[in-house]
Simulated scan of single mutants.
Amino acid sequence: MKKVFTALLAGVFIISTAAITVSAEEYEIQKGDNLWDIAEDNQTSVDALMEINDLKSTVVHPKQIILLNEQYIVEQADTLEGIAEKYSVTVDEIKRWNNLTSDIIVIGQVLEIKSVSDEQVSDSIGKTNSTASKVDTETEEVTSKESREGKTIEVAATAYTASCEGCSGITYTGLDLNKNPNAKVIAVDPNVIPMGSEVYVEGYGYATAADIGSAIKGNKIDVFVPTLSEAEKWGTRSLEVTILE
């Protein structure tokens, strides 16, 4: 994808990891709607919609708000297998619901999770709150180099964004950055940092190597940021990247 590079110098800052979150996608019932058509349009089932919304019958009314599915925000060390197990679905289903062409997912990526029950959602939120507390208490620990085990290399880092004229916003691995502006992605030379690797980037945080660039050769990386102004502010930095084990 097209990149935006800058040559401005800027200070290094640390971005801490965010807690895992789940949120629901809503739909307002229109005149003539029924659960069967809504389920088909959203690749789910009537039973799932009834379970998610605690409906006692299939009757719905105009302007009624129902939940279609769940959205899961990918966190550090998540895998499709782990997320699928948490929601009692399959990896293939998650890939189909999200138009994924590979098993690579990135921190901050939003995944649609369909056909989940209230019990599963409640259990997931409970785990989310527990994980959030754990992340908060461990923030200081993960800031030490000793807690980030892996190979550390020094690189020249620039920044790019999807919100610019002529930018497609689609990474080499197929992730739409316009739909995932909070994704933590870096473009790499796969010969130096293997595609799909989880990394810790000094001044950027935990991220996934999920993109490439024509100018990214050798010990160079390009970090994704949501806006052009952030890319310009980033400039060019010499910093360390740890390829996590």
Rank of each mutant, 00 (worst) to 15 (best):
S117F: 00
D118R: 09
D118N: 07
D118S: 06
E119P: 00
E119V: 02
Q120N: 10
Q120I: 11
Q120Y: 08
S122I: 10
S122C: 05
S122M: 09
D123Q: 11
K127M: 11
K127N: 09
T128L: 04
T128F: 06
T131L: 10
T131V: 08
A132Q: 10
S133W: 08
K134M: 12
K134L: 14
V135D: 14
D136M: 07
T137E: 13
E138L: 13
E138H: 07
T139Q: 14
E140R: 03
E140T: 02
E141Y: 15
V142N: 11
V142C: 08
T143N: 11
S144I: 09
K145R: 13
K145E: 15
S147E: 15
G150A: 04
G150V: 03
K151R: 12
T152N: 08
T152M: 09
I153R: 09
V155T: 05
V155N: 03
A157R: 07
T158E: 10
T158Y: 07
T158N: 15
A159G: 05
A159E: 06
Y160V: 02
T161C: 06
S163L: 12
C164V: 14
G166S: 11
G166R: 07
S168E: 08
S168V: 04
T171K: 09
L177G: 03
K179E: 10
K179V: 04
N180S: 02
N180D: 00
P181A: 02
A183F: 11
A183R: 07
A183Q: 11
K184T: 10
A187D: 01
V188T: 06
V188L: 05
V188S: 06
V188P: 06
V188H: 06
D189L: 01
D189Y: 00
P190I: 05
N191A: 03
V192A: 03
I193E: 06
P194M: 05
G196A: 12
G196M: 13
G196C: 14
S197F: 01
E198T: 07
Y200G: 01
V201F: 08
V201Y: 07
V201I: 15
E202Y: 09
E202D: 11
G205D: 10
G205N: 10
G205H: 08
Y206S: 04
A209N: 06
A210L: 04
A210K: 04
I212K: 01
I212A: 00
G213V: 01
S214Q: 12
S214A: 13
A215C: 13
G218N: 14
K220I: 10
I221G: 12
I221P: 15
I221Q: 11
V223H: 01
V223F: 00
F224W: 05
F224V: 05
P226W: 11
P226D: 13
T227S: 13
T227I: 12
T227E: 08
T227W: 13
L228H: 02
E230Y: 00
A231G: 03
A231R: 00
